[in-house]
Design a protein around this nucleic acid. Structure first.
Lengths: 301, 301
DNA sequence: ACCTGAACACCGTTCAAGT
DNA sequence: ACCTGAACACCGTTCAAGT
């Protein structure tokens, strides 16, 4: 946890290379630049760059700036990168189809036709694997630049994209909470995009924070509800129609047993169509924000 | 899944007894009443009541109405009920303190000082145990009758109660999605209460459904976000202060590495105070609903 | 009748022994 | 140097053998 500063700096630069923000041949920050940018001593900066060279991320040429090494060296062999991508893809296939509980390291290895122990050469353990799955899910759908005009269209776009993502990967909503958000830069990138969408509207940092958190809580909560049905249907192994029929019968039993009369009057259609509820809730949030921006001359509070 | 009707009816009545809605000595529905209420044949009704007698829930007295048996018989010995309650309480203690992943049947048995296999005498398996934990959590905080005046006060009350519940049991939000909502009558009771709060406001079933789902998605989503921090702090084993310091350092590293300038400006205070965000989002939902009820004379949409 | 030890079929992960 | 078989310390759950 308490990583020394030089390691943190090296890791940050390595991440820039990995993510493609720094490409082979590009100059990496000089020791002087690092001292300025990270507010550290010269020795720390030198140590950080030394570590990067040692790890093969950068190449030092005498009398010239240190540059990013060519891919093979940087990636420790291209097939290694391919391997981990293959592993993550296979893991996501299992989780998407059969649920996260079906995803064991041994099962995954079997699917890939390798001994279980081989996985640990590419991935540090199950936890990191899940993290990579989450990153891959969020990374698969980059947001457009500059995106549609107006903050409303932008917010609608990013929320719907996340909603899609959650529906595509029913495990995502519950497992995002297993990781610290910091570890998922791909998800942070979406938050950053959202914040940019709200630039220049005169919201204070506190207001911005509140709005963004509340909105993402709504999207995540809807995804949580959506996950229940997917899993229930999968576990019972029934077709959607069969499932709704037996569900109906059970529902009536429970409602009668407890005297829940109001629940019985709920609209099954709407409850089954979470997409519609999602859209409605999204518009509710947007119109709330719109009002706030327009000075909020509405009745109540 | 496809339980025969007589079993469903018996289970429903047994549940009424277990929940206290039918008390010892109370008459249970006659076979005739059952045929009417459940719309089944006489034979089915008789079979259901026969099963209840066989299971010790009810006592038949010659020439008198069938009544609920006295507790010892109904509960299969009072210490049996106590046992399962003790098991569930011990399980919740583990999950609350150390997280759901620390809760294994073997660990739980060890805490209780019994062999692991003994647990299976009181609980059908881990899945049912978790279900009982969820039911117990929701059941522990009954809503007041008739509750405060006005739908807004009522909605505020039930949402805050659930928010409290989720904060008290960090595992609750993620695991509620593991179960089908039908299996948690205690949670349904809260939804029923919420629906009663919105009685007579002229909302259509579809509108009601949408409002209630969207609101509970928000509460659940907030809980999901809240769970991250609890777990992150627990896993690192740091005090809250230490955690925020190292978190800050890591945050800056990630933000710099990816160039997330907007995220850096977010208000840490607000992000750390989810309660405030919760209150704000709740009011946002309530004012949206208020507007809708008043005919919605506001700008936009 | 009630309880539970031993066993089964799984896990995630490590590490020394292989190539 | 790279790979992996065997092993370890766990799981949840079953069931026959005990009392």
């Amino acid at each position: 946890m308490a990583e020394p500063p030089y390691r943190r700096i090296a890791a940050a630069i390595a991440e820039q290379i990995r993510s493609g923000r720094l490409r082979p041949g590009d100059p990496v920050p000089s020791t002087r630049a690092v001292t300025r940018e990270w507010n550290v001593a010269m020795a720390t900066a030198a140590k950080a760059l030394g570590l990067l060279r040692q790890q093969g991320w950068v190449r030092t040429r005498p009398g010239a700036a240190t540059v990013v090494a060519t891919p093979p060296a940087a990636a420790r062999g291209p097939e290694a990168v391919l391997e981990v991508a293959r592993i993550v893809r296979a893991a996501m296939d299992i989780a998407d189809d059969e649920g996260m509980s079906a995803l064991s390291m041994r099962r995954l290895a079997a699917d890939l036709g390798v001994p279980p122990t081989s996985l640990y050469r590419h991935v540090s353990g199950r936890e990191q694997l899940v993290l990579l799955m989450i990153r891959s899910a969020f990374g698969a759908r980059p947001l457009p630049e500059p995106g549609p005009d107006g903050w409303e269209a932008k917010l609608r776009l990013v929320c719907r994209l996340q909603w899609d993502l959650y529906r595509e990967h029913p495990w995502l909503a519950e497992h995002i909470s297993l990781t610290r958000p910091l570890l998922v830069p791909e998800a942070m990138a979406q938050t950053e995009w959202t914040l940019r969408a709200l630039d220049g509207l005169g919201l204070s940092p506190a207001e911005l924070t509140t709005e963004v958190i509340a909105l993402s809580a709504f999207v995540g909560g809807m995804a949580l509800l959506g996950g229940v049905e997917v899993k229930a249907q999968r576990d019972t192994g029934l077709t959607s129609d069969q499932w709704w029929v037996t569900r109906d019968a059970e529902l009536n039993t429970v409602l009668r047993a407890h005297g829940f009369s109001r629940l019985g009057e709920l609209s099954e259609e709407i409850a089954g169509d979470l997409d519609a509820v999602f859209e409605h809730g999204l518009e509710r949030h947007l119109s709330g924000l719109r009002q706030r921006l327009s000075g909020g001359g509405c009745p109540g509070r």
